[in-house]
Design a protein around this nucleic acid. Structure first.
Lengths: 212, 212
DNA sequence: GGTGACCGAGCGGAACTCGATCATCGCTGT
DNA sequence: ACAGCGATGATCGAGTTCCGCTCGGTCACC
């Protein structure tokens, strides 16, 4: 496993939180707050989410929200981070389980996992990777996509033909950008994900990474 | 010209506005408000933009802002719409001027125009096409990219080899999605636009549209 | 008893409203 | 022609409401 979680609820490091939860009930609270935020975002969108809504839905008070998160934006950033973490766990899990050494399997699994997340993970759709980018237009996207790009890089590095691996990181950047955009389009077209776009995503990304 | 503007300032239809300006001074006001919004967004980002700032910068009062825009978000949506309108005008202008009948010229011009907009058009960078999508996560992107896709469709339809034109609209959807994402990445990496990503954008989009 | 966790009234500021005021336009009668 | 005059467009800005966030006090766990 490349991804290690010190706590089920907390995303990554993480400097997004004011106070790390130490008692059991409080990490449940954190999880609950993020769940509430995810549900609200799915229903009315990030822009209309208020901290009071999050508190009420999680059965907490406003003060509790601000005990964990420095501000409103940090809530959605933490949610995004949790999403990315879960996505990476999935991809990692599936690929080691399969035992495949083919790089294009890793690509396929990554796309499968994202499709699955779009369908089942609350908030993923609205947040994609970096609609937290919405929040802070400077960092958000980088924060979200960087770790993902690095994980894919690590996964592909050992599987990719050596002669082309010089530009692997750049190619991955481009591929992830393309793939995410097409997938987003697929789920913008329909809630279950337009299969035409999804298939096109597979072929485009695989084709590009294969070197045209 | 495919694009017709009834008024220099107003973007498209447009149902984004509460009141259409009818007198001359008031469309100047509208233009001024959008200019102010663009400048502010460039300086401090969409999130930190306040309606009071827009009003002050445009030399208007808050009430005037709300005479034209239903809410804060609509301001940036209108700005996005104006950006898209200007982009389309440019592409259209350059391509008829060139007289080219090659579809890949249309693609090149479209990419050139976007690069130019990123570099010179206030607010374009922050707004891309659909960081208004940021605003209203449901419609924003659709509102922005739809007219663009349709214009490109119209441009390419007469230039594209007939045998493949059946899926032209779908292919264009995908191509625009890919291209926009890669371009955005180029200008996220550096303010002048990372030329490596820009070149990759050209080759990927042209390659894809050529049918691989 | 000491520290972690939680609450919610309250503060500051930003989004948005509304009725009063001013500018422009089109008409109409001389 | 054009001066006057309603009607409608356009502007203003104090005021209201709502939301993000703080802080001191209370409760729960070790």
């Amino acid at each position: 496993m490349l991804v290690t979680e010190t706590n089920e609820a907390l995303p990554g490091g993480s400097s997004l939180l004011r106070n790390e939860p130490v008692q059991a009930r409080s990490s449940a609270r954190l999880t609950g707050l993020l769940d509430a935020a995810a549900a609200i975002i799915d229903e009315i969108g990030f822009e209309r989410l208020t901290t009071a809504m999050v508190a009420e839905r999680a059965g907490a008070s406003i003060g509790t929200v601000y005990r964990y998160f420095p501000d409103r934006i940090a809530v959605v950033e933490a949610l995004a981070a949790r999403c990315v973490g879960r996505l990476m766990e999935r991809i990692d899990g599936v690929i080691v389980e399969s035992g495949s050494q083919e790089w294009h399997d890793a690509v396929d699994f990554a796309i499968d996992a994202q499709v699955d997340m779009y369908r089942t993970e609350p908030g993923f759709r609205a947040i994609r990777f970096g609609d937290a980018e919405v929040a802070d237009s400077t960092s958000g996207e980088t924060e979200g996509r960087r770790p993902f790009a690095e994980q894919m890089s690590a996964l592909l590095a050992v599987r990719y033909p050596v002669e082309r691996s010089a530009d692997l990181d750049f190619a991955l950047d481009v591929a992830i950008e393309m793939g995410s955009a097409i997938l987003a389009r697929a789920f913008q077209a329909s809630p279950e994900g337009d299969s035409r776009f999804i298939e096109e995503c597979r072929s485009v990304v695989t084709g590009y990474l294969a070197g045209a």
